[in-house]
Amino acid sequence: MKNDIILAGVGGQGILSIATVIGQAALTEGWYLKQAEVHGMSQRGGEVQSHLRISTEPIHSDLIPQGKADLILSLEPLEALRYVPWLAPDGCVITSSVPFLNIPDYPEIGEVHAAVKALPRHILLDTDALVKEVNAPVQAANMVLLGAAIPMLGIELEIVKEALQKVFARKSEAIVQTNIRALEAGYAYACK
């Protein structure tokens, strides 16, 4: 069992929290894990990506080879498309449909959505609408996205929830519950 995941988004959107929760869940399951992330200059509103690999077998490379990712998990639709060369032929793209507009030459959003929909396996979800539905702030959009990925992770919802609680332990119980609601909303959306 292995899962090679590319996490994508714009600096500050919270992709590293997704990686931390999945990592914690993988540790609970006794899986191997490698996760390469980008720090420094790339944080300032620029594109951010992280390679997350979890496996029941030892993992060699910190980076996923092109054409081998099982999953692209993105908080921004244009950023999801950027990593399609890494996607395996039977890989899946799960991305928020909400664009992050901080560049002048952002393509027409309809074209971006169409490109995602043209991929053989994809989930395009309106993370902003989903967080609103469960009365969570937009900052919890990352947990909606993670929830939507759970059916493909090979890790049970309950284990991910526990991991989330551990990772967010230093925050208030209210914040933990908000994020769990967001996680469940994403999960329910993907299971529909």
Partner: peptide, 23 residues
């Protein structure tokens, strides 16, 4: 991570992906 979109992944070839530099 800035690979050319030259492969034939359906619609992808048509769409030019602008970079998102830090600011």
């Amino acid at each position: 991570g800035k690979c050319e979109m030259s492969n034939d992944k359906s619609q992808m070839a048509k769409l030019v992906l602008p970079g998102r530099p830090p600011s």
